[in-house]
Design a protein around this nucleic acid. Sequence first.
DNA 1: CATGAATGAGTGTTCATTCAT
DNA 2: AATGAATGAACACTCATTCAT
Lengths: 217, 217, 217, 217
Amino acid sequence: MTRGKDVGSTARGNAPSPTDGRELRHQGKRTMAKLMDAGMRVLAERGYHAARVDDVVRLAKVSHGTFYLYFSNKEDLFGSLAMECADEMTELASLLAPVSAHDDGIDELRRWLAEFVATYRKYGVVIRAWMEDQVTSRELARLGKRTFNAITHSLEGRLRELHGDDHDTQASAAAMLAMVERTTYFVTSRGLPFDDAEMVDTLAKLIHRGFFVPDAA
Amino acid sequence: MTRGKDVGSTARGNAPSPTDGRELRHQGKRTMAKLMDAGMRVLAERGYHAARVDDVVRLAKVSHGTFYLYFSNKEDLFGSLAMECADEMTELASLLAPVSAHDDGIDELRRWLAEFVATYRKYGVVIRAWMEDQVTSRELARLGKRTFNAITHSLEGRLRELHGDDHDTQASAAAMLAMVERTTYFVTSRGLPFDDAEMVDTLAKLIHRGFFVPDAA
Amino acid sequence: MTRGKDVGSTARGNAPSPTDGRELRHQGKRTMAKLMDAGMRVLAERGYHAARVDDVVRLAKVSHGTFYLYFSNKEDLFGSLAMECADEMTELASLLAPVSAHDDGIDELRRWLAEFVATYRKYGVVIRAWMEDQVTSRELARLGKRTFNAITHSLEGRLRELHGDDHDTQASAAAMLAMVERTTYFVTSRGLPFDDAEMVDTLAKLIHRGFFVPDAA
Amino acid sequence: MTRGKDVGSTARGNAPSPTDGRELRHQGKRTMAKLMDAGMRVLAERGYHAARVDDVVRLAKVSHGTFYLYFSNKEDLFGSLAMECADEMTELASLLAPVSAHDDGIDELRRWLAEFVATYRKYGVVIRAWMEDQVTSRELARLGKRTFNAITHSLEGRLRELHGDDHDTQASAAAMLAMVERTTYFVTSRGLPFDDAEMVDTLAKLIHRGFFVPDAA
DNA sequence: CATGAATGAGTGTTCATTCAT
DNA sequence: AATGAATGAACACTCATTCAT
């Protein structure tokens, strides 16, 4: 994925982005990337609301003024990060193959969850900001909703392949995503004593049994 | 539960609370209660970080000065709320009876989840602040961790009754709580098209099958 | 005239004024007056656009924070000054008695012009800001327009008493006001070598002859 | 008039102009002209204080760097515009022929006023900046004063031809100019419902009767 | 001759907290 | 016990000007 904002001022608040109408040269792109990296790090360290422009520019080693050469405001930066994230997450949604009720279904889940965790390690802060409704901007919230819908739909599809419509697939998918996201969050952010593999394995099994095995009846 | 801070300055930051060591008269208690109610409401409306002391005092119809007569600072107020919450949550933890692998296990889960949702409706903001690591204060975070451990331990106990130690009960309990909390959050906070009963029912079934039914194998 | 904002947030931009819903005590009123005085002085010294909140608070010897306890922003302060000014100016408009074509018409003009100059000495900066379209706020500009219309209408009335509608009374009134305002501005602000009396006298005569004497024809 | 700065750093602040002492080639002159045109337009649209270098360079389609290749700073640009304006205005001053007390005096006034209005349409912003003391630079203010003196002297001369020194010709001339300038400003800048011809006609008559007709006595 | 990039001092505004009455 | 008033550090954002290429 190319880093950078390839869209206009949509989905990032109303102030047009300073870079909207102009081409960036080498150095410009580098600075922009530095700022986005710094933004991600600051977001991770201090959280969405406590993130200060000052922290970002200090980390990126550019001046205050420079920041506003690339982003119209704080929200614009976070919006750009969110759009990167949305792209990867949406692609992730499409990567879940059908999950069989047999044990190889667990393998597929394991594979996908591993991808999810990797993405989460990269964009966790953004995902959290969405999951936790910390985003105030209309556009940004909308983008988050769209992104999550993509994943939920994908999960629903897999559920429906097995159960048809007799289960409440929508609620199940939501609950499944909730569990996956939070657990990932706990394991990646807090010092929970599981490693990624362990967590992925446990989750895969739980999900498989809870959601993808037909009722014993 | 008696409203009010019955403990010293532990678990609420370092500044001693203005009310530590003095008895409150009738009016004092009333004012304190007004402030805590207002605090809860503001927390719910604006979220942890956006909550302003100004909002609280305006809602409670007291002056800024009065606020600091009862709480040493903003965090102290939230700490007090957190302690109320911790009490109820800890009690909640003890309320989960053994969950059988048969269908009446679902009933017990349903009952307990209904309690959980009720508590969440009341203290959701505080619980979220814990779950989402919005709490900066050491003490407050510790309190949250203790509270969640209480619940997790309770869940682990029920799991162990069924599976012994062959499953990863700790990870399972964490995942279960994660799922329950987030789903409740989504349903109570966002406009998800499920009512409480529906959600509780779906969750109860999912949890039962996923966590409390022994492997078919 | 009582100093202070006796109206709601109309005519001063959209942010509601911090004092809108509360009664000010003695000290509060004093501070507000200090701020308005300082505002006037800063406006006079530096002009509308160059006026800094910092200058105002330094002159008023209050902190930055205090400023925003009384005015929602810079514009709000200037808006308050403008409303004071608008009141006095509108009253001034009503004070011009009929101007006869004989020499005693000059006396009436002289009297009124003296009042005008006095008001100008007090509110010149505000009046200038209006005359010179320095005001960006919709509401403030509207207020200015209304105020000037009051004066122009008054002048038109006097003209029409003499000439009926055969002259272009509207344009004449506008030209007359233009002349009076600018001349007053030059004399009060720059070091022109006329004193008030001299200027008033000359203006009265010029206006009388130019506008209030019927065509010799 | 040749566009360009034909003088040294006098009258434009102290920083020497980047183009002082070097000859401009064809392209250089073109860029400079583009900048001055843009400067004029920006000045007209946003006013003296709100005029941003950024607006100018964007309109002129050159880079920020280029701007400082031709002007030592913002003020230097405006200074250059002011000097163009001063030239035209000074010439305008010399164009007022004697004004007779008879009706053909009105014709001469009408002619001259039409010229004035034309000049104002072109350089109004600069003239306003002078009239309204928006100019902070010593030199620029001095230039304005000189320019206005030229016109005032011309007017005084015409007045003295008729009245000798018995009237206060100096104050009269100042008042006359004040009236003319402001009225022109109002008509050209605001949406007053007069066209140029109408205004010129009214002004000519007013001025003639007010200033150039001897006392009826 | 021209440009895109970078700078940093300056400015308006917010808000938790303290103070005098 | 309560209040209105005051504070000042912190923060987002602007813009004239300089610099490296």
